[in-house]
Nucleic acid binder design. Structure first.
Length: 425
RNA sequence: GGAGAGAUGGCAGAGUGGUCGAAUGCGGCAGACUCGAAAUCUGUUGUACGGUUUACCGUACCGGGGGUUCGAAUCCCUCUCUCUCCGCCA
């Protein structure tokens, strides 16, 4: 949620910065209409409440002295019906205002390039050389199927499209990847490993993004206030919900391996082949809660942590900065890491690392006790470190050989019983 | 699944219809004592919002939501969660 104080102080300025995200991000005149009615109504209601409190107190004191209170009681009664009306009015106005507020996206950081779409995302850096194949490289579906490791027909039979069944050494490689990522992040980057619920309440979902805006993307448990998590960011970020963290405890750094469930309602027909965009996939997620002054340094570090996995797996990648028009709703700044996929002859997203500043913390009331002793909102960050399914895709494609075998990256061999190569049966 | 108990400020814990935003203790902060520290003593210390702006005034908040009442932390309904006992179970 955006800072209401900032909005009140400087609506034009906020509107200007939000406009870089694209049309319709924020309507100033609607906001100002809301504000003037709200001010008037709120002042009136509070004044009436003050009189009610005064009268109630007077009655108490008069009674204690044994005086007659009939007159005062009558005054109170009159005020009560009046109050009920204006209170209801104010409540309605404020819930409408809250709804408006929750639909306003985060203000992009000043360093974020202005642009309209992913075409305008500037590349920050590249690492590794895409391999030159002396045969026509297959895509992960063909490679995995030939290894008898990926089975989309069986998955479709069980659950429909956009699911995968993994078997044998490919399933093991998938597990090895998650273990490897967890080990690197806990041992070398200082993250605490966590295991979390794969469902969260509506309130938690709303703290992380905006439920009124993203309900469609989530799988809901029928008849319960529970949603399957689309990323471990949901449960983990909510660790600090309604908490005041001691200054010296910051930064909090958590890593979590979990399945992720997404309805992919808006992406019909996109990436339908294979396991690039499935309803269920595994991800190792990095989450940090940090001091506001350190959040941009933390974003660079966190992105580096995700990159280090690709470097050790020797997978070529590049890092782009998302432009204002391509950035997610809650983010102030996002780097995407894209891995090279030979079959598509392009780089595809494998991690997204964002600084949300206080946007999530405000809604969650996630705070720390600042140097002056006062509670202040923390900044939250997260990033994939990495998407496990897509990393498996990248390995199958980049490490494939002409004979249909796939070599195991050196970093993973310890997790694969020393195995160096997966071969078709 | 059954029975019972409970949820109050950073923490512990009083408060069962009227100067209660809330005793007391711990913790935090400031001061006194001290060369300094500890101990001791004194004072102070919730959050959000609105109005005014160094001060100040007002409103809301005692697990969530609803109700009764002139007035609710306190009474009623409901939901959630925690604990204890019993049963069942990977």
């Amino acid at each position: 949620m955006i800072d209401i104080q900032l909005l009140r102080r400087n609506p034009q300025d906020v509107a200007k910065r939000l406009a870089t995200r694209g049309p319709g991000a924020f309507d100033v005149s609607q906001f100002e209409r809301f504000e003037s009615t709200r001010k008037e109504l709120q002042a009136a209601v509070q004044q009436a409440q003050a009189s009610r409190n005064r009268i109630a107190k007077d009655i108490g004191q008069a009674k204690a002295r044994g005086q007659d209170v009939a007159e005062l009681m009558q005054q109170g009664e009159k005020l009560k019906s009046l109050l009920e009306q204006s209170e209801a009015q104010l409540e309605k106005l404020q819930s409408g205002f809250q709804d408006l507020l929750e639909r306003i996206p985060n203000i992009p950081h000043e360093s974020v390039p202005v642009g309209a779409s992913s075409e305008d995302n500037p590349e920050q850096r590249r690492w590794g050389e895409p391999r030159k194949f002396d045969f026509a490289p297959k895509d992960h579906v063909d490679v995995g199927t030939e290894l008898s490791g990926l089975d989309f027909e069986t998955a479709a039979k069980i659950a429909g499209s956009r699911f995968v069944v993994m078997k044998g050494e490919v399933a093991r490689l998938h597990r090895a990847l998650a273990q490897f990522m967890l080990d690197v992040h806990t041992r070398e980057h200082g993250y605490t490993e966590t295991y979390v619920p794969y469902m969260v309440s509506g309130a938690c979902a709303n703290g992380v993004s905006s439920l009124s805006k993203f309900r469609e993307d989530l799988f809901k448990i029928e008849g319960r206030d529970l949603y399957l998590i689309p990323t471990a960011e949901y449960p983990v970020t909510n660790f600090v919900r309604d908490e005041i963290i001691a200054l010296e405890k910051l930064p909090l750094k958590y890593v979590c391996h979990s399945p992720c469930f997404r309805s992919e309602a808006g992406s019909a027909g996109k990436d339908t082949r294979g396991m690039i965009r499935n309803h269920q996939f595994d991800k190792v997620e990095l989450v940090q809660m940090v001091h506001p002054a350190r959040s941009y340094a933390a974003l660079e570090e966190l992105t580096g942590h995700a990159e280090s996995i690709l470097k050790r797996l020797e997978l070529p990648y590049r890092v782009v900065t998302l432009c204002t028009g391509d950035m997610g709703f809650s983010s102030a700044k996002t780097y995407d890491i894209e891995v090279w996929l030979p079959s598509q002859n392009t780089y595809r997203e494998i991690s997204s690392c964002s600084n949300f500043e206080a946007f999530q913390a405000r809604r969650m009331q996630a705070r720390y006790r600042a140097e002056n002793g006062k509670p202040d909102l923390v900044h939250t960050l997260n990033g994939s470190g990495l998407a496990v399914g897509r990393t498996l895709v990248a390995i199958l494609e980049n490490y494939q050989e002409a004979d249909g075998s796939v070599s195991v990256p050196g970093a993973l061999r310890g997790y694969m019983g020393g195995r160096e190569r997966l071969t078709p049966p």
